[in-house]
Design a protein around this nucleic acid. Sequence first.
DNA 1: GTCTATATTTGGATAGAC
DNA 2: GTCTATCCAAATATAGAC
Lengths: 203, 203
Amino acid sequence: MLGTPTRDRRSERREATKTEIVGVAWELARTEGLAAISLREIARRVGMQAPSLYSYFDSKNAIYDAMFAEGAREFLNRDRPAETGKALRDLQAHMRFFVQFCTEDAARYQLLFQRTIPGFEPSADSFAISVAGLELTRERLARMGFDDPRVLDLLTAIGTGLTDQQISNDPGGDRWVRLVDEAMEMFFQHVTTRMKKKGRARP
Amino acid sequence: MLGTPTRDRRSERREATKTEIVGVAWELARTEGLAAISLREIARRVGMQAPSLYSYFDSKNAIYDAMFAEGAREFLNRDRPAETGKALRDLQAHMRFFVQFCTEDAARYQLLFQRTIPGFEPSADSFAISVAGLELTRERLARMGFDDPRVLDLLTAIGTGLTDQQISNDPGGDRWVRLVDEAMEMFFQHVTTRMKKKGRARP
DNA sequence: GTCTATATTTGGATAGAC
DNA sequence: GTCTATCCAAATATAGAC
């Protein structure tokens, strides 16, 4: 009887190449813009001819989809600040975490959180990863006492506003990033006051 | 001696055609996306062949530039809410004005306020119009007592955050638009409290 | 000012040999 | 799995006749 290998060197190699292709695609997206990546240029940088890429991905959008999945997995798996039970501190720490993640890679933010690549929609599998990541955030905010949809909408607006301004008007800097703590103080003050008025418990 | 006409019918006609071309370009940008407009399609819709457009504009970017100038002029010339002297009310009204302007035409917002068309930069003339519009806003906020750069950065982040969320996650709806008044209350409360602490006059 | 014809570039994708 | 060769489509832009 023939021995059955527990590892498949061929598919390991294949996965490694796919990873390399996606890595080069990200590199290109960061320098030339997310919409400007081309199969020819990706192929050139990994030392292939363009058609060879089709052995690994069915289409250009399949590459975008792999990029989306990778970015979403990074968000899902990244270590989050520990919860201390002090609502304001936790809120500040978590928003710093979020804005930091978004602004450290504008191309990734564009792919994950904005709708800007014409004709690209993430696959159900990739989308599920991203939903899982956002769900972590939602649960955490709920533990802090923020579960009113309106309040969450206000909070997400502040988060994306700081992120967008940072990326658009001070890329690489920290002009808006450093406003996160103050913005959360403002938000927290507002929400707790409003909750008291409504006779609800403080978070 | 020959009579000298006070009007130049030829150049009037020419300007009218340029305006028509830009109008069709906007129409296309709104339906297909700002980046997706093509000279062929513009020409087709105005009843020309593509090369004929070059009699009116030197390049595709020149059309983008004319669009930019038109959008900036709309922002500059639009009637703004009257100032009442009540800082919070004026702030709310002005932010409603801004978010309304931005969200009513996502393509225009994208062209004027985001950097998303690869290779396009507005000309100095067009850019000056947009600067004049933003300057109106800056002056108005200064009259309300908001002139600290940090405070203005926080305010613009809230404004673009509400706008972006509205456009990205509820296009055509009002899920974030209707949070403007509350957001301004929150901001106002925060800033006045902070000013008092610093011993400065209330706005 | 508008047209036809065409240059030029660039992109995604496929066929088929090796 | 990789290559060469090629297809096909779309885009901006130019030349030159009318």
